[in-house]
């Protein structure tokens, strides 16, 4: 009995320590180091040396990092509410008794979750670029010219669209299944009071799926801070996405293009700490509100 929980949790803990904790600690250690030149060979050799907090100072004093968080904020303000709003809307609609083609819609909306990034990249290039886009084709036929999917502020919408497309189904299923966990009696009571379906949806259902919405919000925020796939997808097709557009793109550049793993490790540490702070902040606000409401 006393040993049992340790045995059950054991494999997970061992794997966690070996494949996540130690690599994370290793990354933190790396973030205190740098590759520096020493004599030898034709050009000298780069060897690892200890540099203390130099990488952190470098990362934090880089104005591009602040700018990239600004871009994330704009993107997040579009993508997060729309993803969750649409997910909630679809979930509520699926829960309307008389709606047809439910299984088709539910499956279709979920499918993008299963489409790999490599494929999504190819796909959206064709959807957005003026001469291959079927949408721009329509607007051009109508005499309005192509849609500026990939330039200026249109870019934020296009990026958010990819995220919404990929994420709305997953969030919809979370909210929908939690909707189906609500006992019918609650609706009956509301109906007896003369409420219509819309009123029931807004006044009964939405408050009851609050916890599910909170959870999806936290995950959506973490996803926003770790935004990477969508801008990387569109980068080869537009000059408006720089290599440092999002914080994770900078990390990728440092780790995989310019052979500066220590800087990537330092940025990652800062990003992870920021994410923890933001998550705690949101959960704190929500808990205080709840607590306040109860007292």
């Amino acid at each position: 009995m006393r040993l049992a929980p340790y045995l059950f949790a054991g494999p997970a803990v061992v794997l966690y320590v070996v494949f996540m904790l130690i690599p994370v600690l290793y990354a933190i250690w790396l973030s205190l180091r740098a590759y520096r030149l020493q004599a030898g060979g034709t050009f000298g050799r780069r060897v690892e040396v200890f540099v203390g907090l130099e990488n952190y100072i470098g990362v934090l004093s880089d104005p591009e990092l602040l700018a990239s968080f600004g871009r994330l904020a704009i993107y997040g303000l579009i993508a997060v509410p729309l993803t969750l709003g649409l997910a909630l809307l679809f979930a509520l609609l699926l829960d309307v008794p008389a709606v047809r083609a439910k299984r088709f819609s539910r499956t279709a909306i979920f499918i993008p979750y299963a489409v790999p990034g490599v494929v999504a990249a190819l796909m959206w290039g064709f959807m957005y670029l003026p001469s291959t886009s079927p949408f721009s084709y329509l607007t051009e036929q109508a005499g309005w010219g192509p849609i500026p999917f990939l330039t200026g502020s249109g870019l934020f919408g296009s990026l958010a669209n990819i995220a919404i497309w990929g994420g709305v189904g997953f969030n919809m299923i979370i909210i929908y299944t939690s909707l189906r966990g609500i006992p019918d009696e609650l609706y009956e009571a509301a109906r007896l009071d003369g409420a219509n379906e819309l009123q029931i949806a807004l006044r009964v259902k939405v408050p009851l799926v609050g916890p599910a919405i909170l959870l999806t919000t936290v995950f959506a925020l973490i996803g926003t801070l770790q935004l990477y796939g969508e801008p990387m997808t569109l980068k080869p097709m537009t000059n408006d996405i720089s290599q440092t557009w999002a914080p994770l793109m900078t990390i990728y550049r440092d780790a995989f293009l310019t052979d500066n793993l220590p800087a990537a490790a330092a940025s990652s540490t800062i990003l992870a700490l920021g994410t923890v702070a933001l998550s705690l902040l949101i959960l704190g606000i929500v808990n205080r509100k709840r607590f306040g409401a109860r007292s």
Partner: peptide, 16 residues
Amino acid sequence: STEPLLTPEYNAKLNE
């Protein structure tokens, strides 16, 4: 122009 190379857009122009 300075449009990116070998995108579907660019390839369409090559073909056209």
